[in-house]
Amino acid sequence: MTKPLSFDDLQSDFELFEDWEDKYRMLIELGRTLEPMPDALKTDATRVRGCSSQVWFFAEPRADGRLHFLGDSDAHIVRGLIAVLFLLFQDRTPDEILAIDARGKLGELGLAGHLSPTRTNGLYSMVGRIQALAQDAASA
């Protein structure tokens, strides 16, 4: 059984590629690994605002207080970005999620410099949505 990919693993893999086309391909492949999000959860309430693509996030609280996220997009590269965010945030407690410096971690991958401005804004909108879901869960 192989160990699940971690954010640090992804960062190491990214460093092996010099060409951003290879990194984009890796992101798209990573997006294909997302747990399916049921269409019934793709509603206006779960839609992420600020993304040029259609993006949805749903947080399922677990018995131990951790949040399990489901997410989807109609764009392959954005599905890959969702998968990257899930490497940072998936199955953590709300306090752990809120303590993560997502901009710093994503900056280490160099994504912002290689995504369009609208994709970069959308990426940070997705981070904001995850943090808002964690904040809601923490205050519930």
Rank of each mutant, 00 (worst) to 15 (best):
I82D: 02
Q131H: 11
T33W: 00
G71Y: 01
A138C: 02
S12G: 08
L109P: 09
D72M: 00
H76P: 10
E29R: 13
D44E: 14
S116Y: 00
G50S: 05
F57N: 07
T118L: 13
S116R: 04
G122Y: 00
R79S: 05
I100M: 15
D136V: 14
A137W: 12
M26I: 05
F57M: 15
T93E: 06
P36N: 01
L34S: 04
E18T: 08
V48T: 10
G128A: 13
V55S: 01
D13F: 09
Q54T: 04
I97S: 11
P4T: 07
M126L: 07
R103I: 04
A132D: 15
K42V: 00
E60D: 13
S52P: 03
F58P: 00
F58R: 06
D74A: 07
L30W: 10
R49H: 14
R47C: 12
L85D: 10
F89M: 08
S73L: 00
A112K: 08
M26K: 12
E21M: 09
G31S: 03
I28K: 04
D64K: 10
D44W: 01
M1T: 11
I97R: 08
Y124D: 00
A137N: 11
L111S: 04
L85G: 08
L88T: 09
A102H: 08
L88G: 11
D91C: 00
H76Y: 08
G107D: 15
G65W: 11
R119I: 07
L85I: 10
D95Q: 11
Q11K: 13
G80H: 01
F57W: 09
A99G: 06
E15H: 07
L81Y: 00
R62M: 14
F69Y: 15
W56G: 01
I100N: 12
R47F: 00
D72Y: 01
L30A: 03
R92D: 09
S116L: 07
G71V: 02
E60A: 15
S116I: 07
D91Y: 04
D22P: 11
L41P: 02
S12I: 08
M37I: 01
A83T: 05
G110K: 09
R79A: 02
E60Y: 08
K42W: 06
S139C: 10
L98V: 13
A40S: 14
L88Y: 06
L41R: 10
D9E: 09
R32E: 10
A140H: 14
F17H: 14
P61G: 04
E96R: 14
L70W: 12
A45T: 13
A137Q: 13
D95N: 13
F86S: 05
I100R: 13
